[in-house]
Design a protein around this nucleic acid. Structure first.
Lengths: 152, 152
DNA sequence: CTTGAAAAGAACTGCCT
DNA sequence: AGGCAGTTCTTTTCAAG
């Protein structure tokens, strides 16, 4: 864990909420000049605390109306199985996120599709043919709310 | 779904990868002038396709070494139960994401904690005391990989 | 749609406390 | 570490084709 003071934490929380804020505006909010705020943000990037900037998308407006979470249990475990599975699953374009987890399932996948018909195609032709897949379980996303988290 | 051409889709994909790219640089990549690329990005924001800009954080470097996914099944369902649960769960600072889903569970939560001891505290004092919680299931995150998705 | 220009603002640098 | 002043770059708006 990196050594951060209170202002650093507040900068991180503010940028996690909205990364379009300028260093000058953030500086005014937290009692810093524009270069001081900018240098702190730069240090946070160099320290690897801030790892990149992304845009949030409305997937429905892009034609992807269905998001499904899949819990996947591998039939055969072991180093080779994990690597084979990960290599194959990351090649599926509809898979947005691959999470290696501990618990009832071995992997959690976030899968997007145009509609349920399209999702069935992905499931049958892509997911179920993955190497080493045993049991799996699906949850269809109805709505999602992101919260500031324990920083803000 | 909004009406987007091929260049719009490529701009969205590029910004989803790295939102720190300037309109001029994106324009050069896709054969547009700087103002043309800038206007397209602005239209995508106004159309609600791009909904905001966020920074990616290294939660470990911020002192949150544990991420757990919780599948929660409600004991009593109905409009009031859902609203009560959602109101209570969004008040827990450690809960980063609340997903209402269809399937074996009713909700999926992304929870962050400093360590497993801290997670146990959140689980026992915050999650298990939520109104209407029935069964639940936990997956501890080991590693996570995000992919460009079906746009890129 | 494009180019070119101009103004505003944000990012970045060097120097000083 | 912070602030000030100045420079460079991007963003933003405009005129015109």
């Amino acid at each position: 864990m990196t050594d951060l003071d209170d202002i650093d934490r507040r900068l991180v929380a503010a940028l996690a909420e909205d990364a379009a804020q300028s260093a000058g505006a953030l500086g005014r909010r937290f009692g810093l000049s524009q270069p001081a705020a900018w240098r702190r943000i730069r240090r946070l990037e160099e320290a690897g605390v801030l790892t990149g900037r992304r845009v949030d998308l409305d997937l429905e407006k892009l034609g992807f109306g269905v998001t499904v979470f899949l819990g996947v249990k591998l039939a055969t475990k072991g180093r080779v199985s994990l690597e084979d599975f990960e290599r194959a699953v990351t090649a599926i374009p509809e898979v947005q996120t691959v999470q290696h987890v501990l618990g009832l399932y071995d992997y959690r996948l976030r899968v997007v599709a145009r509609d349920l018909t399209d999702f069935e195609r992905v499931l049958r032709r892509r997911i179920m043919t993955l190497p080493g897949v045993g049991d799996f379980e699906a949850n269809v996303l109805l709505s999602e709310e992101r919260r500031p988290g324990p920083l803000g």
